[in-house]
């Protein structure tokens, strides 16, 4: 061969090292906690009103058994509710992608579902479905399915027209085109939507439990607030924040397993 073929580009720039990425949030959180601790100590405010962070940790640890018993139901409700939300989200988004008629029929309904004030709906759910798993699962699904559907629908729609043409020129059916191009192409925006959804899921679970439950972080917070145990309310808030962060981090792990080609 006489024609000289050029070489591939050099390797991409390395990502910043870990400490550089983690340092800023750690510094900010540490500063806030120190400020809070100093503020509480110096002002002498009553712990029923505002406990110091040290007290929150100390009392949270002393009541770790109660916190743990109430964390498990919340985790369970979150997992089931979010799984339902994902299933519904994928089915709706796929249906809407295949049928313009369904898109026109369903999208306004879905948007309308997001205008429902959850604060009014959640107690009604308990009225209708009791104190079991179902009303909480429905509240979580209601608050999290929308970002998932929107992320998927827009991800599917973002498919390059020319990529569709290429597949059709190869003789692909609509379903084959969906499987080979539209579905994988939608994954980046799906994972973004997944991260938004999962942060709402834990809050949704706590909200549903707050209104009425046999156990769970939400009802625990409600009970502790009624006993003026602000420190334990905040300890439960801390636990829910840790759960949310862990689930958020988990989405990156799943993304690396499912779609390692997505560049960040």
């Amino acid at each position: 061969m006489t024609a000289t073929l050029e070489r591939p580009p050099a390797a991409a720039r390395p990502v910043p090292r870990r400490p550089a990425r983690w340092a800023p949030p750690v510094v900010v959180i540490a500063l806030l906690l120190v400020g809070w601790q100093l503020g509480v100590t110096l002002s002498g405010v009553a712990p029923q009103v505002l406990p110091s962070p040290l007290r929150v940790v100390e009392q949270g640890w002393a009541n770790r058994a109660a916190l743990w018993t109430n964390t498990l139901p919340t985790l369970q409700v979150t997992a089931v509710g979010f799984a339902l939300s994902l299933a519904v989200g994928w089915v709706l988004a796929t249906a809407v992608d295949f049928s313009p008629w369904l898109r026109r029929a369903l999208l306004p309904l879905m948007i309308a579902s997001q205008t429902l004030p959850i604060i009014a709906i959640a107690p009604l759910m308990i009225l209708w479905f009791g104190f079991g798993l179902l009303p909480k699962v429905l509240v979580i699904a209601l608050v999290t399915f929308f970002p998932i559907v929107v992320g998927l629908v827009e991800g599917f729609a973002r498919t390059d027209r020319e990529a569709s043409n290429l597949l059709r020129s190869m003789g692909a059916s609509r379903w084959t085109e969906f499987r080979y191009v539209r579905l994988p192409g939608a994954l980046p925006s799906f994972f973004t939507a997944l991260r938004i959804g999962i942060t709402y899921a834990v809050t949704g679970a706590i909200f549903a439990e707050y209104v009425g439950a046999q156990a769970g972080l939400g009802i625990f917070m409600n009970q502790q607030k009624n006993s003026f145990r602000t420190d334990l309310v905040l300890a439960a808030v801390g636990v829910s924040a840790v759960i949310t962060l862990a689930l958020f981090a988990l989405t990156f792990l799943v993304q690396r397993l499912v779609a390692p080609w997505i560049r960040r």
């Binding site: 390059d160 020319e162 990529a163 043409n165 290429l166 020129s169 080979y180 191009v181 994988p184 192409g185 994954l187 779609a259 080609w261 997505i262 560049r263």
Partner: peptide, 11 residues
């Protein structure tokens, strides 16, 4: 058919 863009899929 080879379109103008290479359309190589990153996945």
């Amino acid at each position: 058919y080879m379109p103008q863009k290479d359309l190589l899929f990153p996945w």
